[in-house]
């Protein structure tokens, strides 16, 4: 991509300088502390980090541990020894019970199917709109963007009550389309995409314009490929929110065969009255969290980047 800097006007030059200087500032901002940290201070800080990480991991640790044990009771005092009463065969026996309970494989597939469709469509729609708001100049841009952001403030039930009524009228209660469609329009994705497209130097696109590419071509051939991290981040966010969504499926779904995992877990929790069978419950919880954790481990960088993008000004 040839940058035509030779005939820059003063306006564009200042813009270029601004882009460069702001990218520098970002680099310098990443330097953690300007003071040299003593060895003692550094080890104290790291000790604090490790302690916090342990505190935060203990609930999940027990969850995993419990799915390798057979006792249905929580146990008192809580046994956190990883070698006490745990075995693979216990895990397999718990797994067989959970997997055979109700429609667990179907619930899993429902969750995967719904999340996949929601992610693909929501990210695509969000990217198109985010690009238009960041880069294309059109009448009504600000007011429309404001309208998109304003949807973030609308409490969930204001929308959901009507959506439920629509689904009743359309006969879409207890259907996949009824489950998926309301989850697709996402202001967060639009905002995230817009923020990212704003960070791409506009000189790249300007050069493409001079080469005669039309705005649509510029998006698909140049800007979208440059925005891969933003696509990744918004795909992950959408996946997490769709995978974890509880309230809309609770309204929309009426038969156990259509359950997604959060509904299934809640159903499973009440399966034995007030007594929760903790070994099976924790195994079910573990396998419902596995896809999230895998995606998180692989894409941790994009998570952090995405939240940072939505959390800072331009």
């Amino acid at each position: 991509m040839g940058m035509t800097v030779s005939d820059q006007s003063s306006g564009q030059l200042t813009r270029l300088l601004k882009t460069i200087s702001s990218s520098f500032r970002r680099e310098e901002g990443n330097v953690p502390t300007v003071y040299r940290m003593g060895r003692l201070k550094s080890s104290l800080l790291q000790a604090a980090m490790v302690v916090l990480a342990i505190i935060y991991f203990i609930p999940f640790y027990w969850m995993i541990l419990k799915s390798f044990r057979l006792s249905i009771f929580a146990g008192f005092p809580v046994d956190l020894n990883p070698f006490s009463r745990t075995s693979i065969s216990n895990f397999i026996s718990n797994f067989n019970y959970v997997w055979g309970f109700g429609n667990f494989p179907i619930w899993y597939l429902n969750s995967i199917f719904v999340s996949a469709v929601v992610v693909v469509s929501s990210v695509f729609i969000g990217a198109l709109a985010g690009y238009a708001f960041a880069r294309l100049d059109f009448p009504g841009r600000n007011i429309l963007f404001y309208a998109v952001l304003a949807t973030l403030m609308i409490p969930f039930p204001v929308i959901t009550i009507s959506e439920y009524v629509f689904m009743v009228k359309l006969g879409w209660i207890n259907t996949y389309q009824g489950l998926m469609l309301p989850q697709i329009a996402s202001a967060v994705n639009v905002y995230l995409m817009r923020q990212y497209f704003l960070t791409i130097p506009s000189e790249i696109e300007d050069a493409a314009k001079i080469d005669g590419l039309r705005p649509g071509q510029i998006f698909f051939r140049i800007s979208a490929p440059l925005a891969k991290p933003a696509f990744a981040a918004s795909a992950i966010f959408t996946f997490i929110s769709s995978w974890n969504n509880f309230i809309w499926p609770l309204f929309e779904i009426q038969t156990t065969g259509m359950y997604t995992l959060p509904l299934a877990l809640n159903f499973f929790k009440g399966a034995n009255g007030t007594q929760i069978y903790w070994n099976d419950m924790m195994l079910a919880t573990t396998i419902s969290l596995i896809p999230t954790f895998i995606i998180y481990v692989i894409f941790e960088r994009f998570f952090i980047q995405g939240i940072s993008l939505t959390g800072t000004k331009g």
Partner: peptide, 25 residues
């Protein structure tokens, strides 16, 4: 062309927003 492209780009979003946010409100 820029304006038309922009409207085409935001159209899917706004169709979904109208159907599943604004109209329900």
């Amino acid at each position: 062309v820029v304006s038309l492209t922009a409207y085409a780009f935001i159209a899917p979003l706004f169709i979904m927003l109208f159907a599943f946010v604004f109209f329900p409100v």
